[in-house]
Amino acid sequence: MIELESVSKYYATRSGARRILSDVSTRIAAGERIGILGRNGSGKSTLLRLLSGVERPSRGEVRRSMSVSWPLAFGGAFQSSLTGLDNLRFICRLYDVPFEEKVEFVERFTELGAYLREPVKRYSAGMRARLSFALSLAVDFDCYLIDEVIAVGDSTFHKKCEYELFERRGACAFVLVSHATDLIERYCRRAAVLKGGRFSEFGTVADAYEHYRG
């Protein structure tokens, strides 16, 4: 279970505090899938960082009783001077996962070839996203946080992402933020909208989309 209780997030700016999220309360149970709609700048990525623990709320509380991934495609935890495989080694040590058992999967999944043995600072944004996705899948989390990562790469890579996440890990919980309502309709059982810092939940994706468009 992940529980958010009256969570708000502010960032300091030159003109004063800027509110991103305001009094968000929700629960995500084991195995549950929730889609989140919101326009650019609505706070979707901020919410995922709070769920993962990458950031802390300005006010309120986030409680976790299951393991949660970092936001897929988030590369902020990379050591850019290390190679892709060295970053995998670090993640495996951190989560007590056998490194040797994960190398083949990461090589096959990322399709980065020799670049896996190059420093991450030489990667393009898309290459970093592929690596972050693969490293997330190298660890068995109870809940995966997905931030538009399926848009990375070509159609073949999109299908590979969807298979790895939604079929092979079908029993896991997901929080999926996306502008692609068809993706949310296909894989999520409920949906919410972030608008003006407010988090509104709906029983169906159709109802959420109607509110999102309004």
Rank of each mutant, 00 (worst) to 15 (best):
R49K: 15
F133G: 03
L137H: 03
T156N: 12
G75F: 05
E101P: 01
S25F: 12
G76S: 09
H211W: 10
G60V: 06
S178P: 09
F78Y: 03
E148H: 12
A171E: 15
E101K: 13
R18M: 13
G113S: 00
A192N: 06
V97Q: 06
V193M: 01
R19P: 02
E111H: 04
Y212V: 05
V205L: 12
S25V: 11
T156E: 10
V7Q: 10
E5T: 15
F202G: 05
G196R: 01
L72W: 07
E104L: 03
L116I: 06
L137V: 05
Y212E: 04
P119R: 09
R108W: 08
A208Q: 05
F109C: 03
A192C: 02
R213D: 04
N40C: 03
L112F: 08
K121N: 12
F105K: 02
T204G: 04
V177H: 05
A17C: 10
L145M: 02
I28F: 15
K195P: 00
G153M: 01
A29G: 12
R130L: 02
K159F: 06
R14D: 15
R213M: 12
A73I: 07
E61Q: 12
Y187K: 05
P57K: 07
S42D: 01
H211L: 09
H211P: 01
F78K: 00
I28T: 07
G75T: 08
A192M: 01
Y11G: 01
E100W: 11
V177T: 02
L37M: 10
A12T: 13
R49H: 14
V106R: 00
I34F: 05
V175G: 02
A171P: 05
G76P: 00
E5C: 13
G60N: 03
F133P: 01
P98H: 10
F105Q: 03
F105R: 02
S45K: 06
A114I: 10
A29S: 14
E101L: 08
R190D: 06
A208Y: 09
T46P: 05
C172R: 15
T181A: 14
R117C: 08
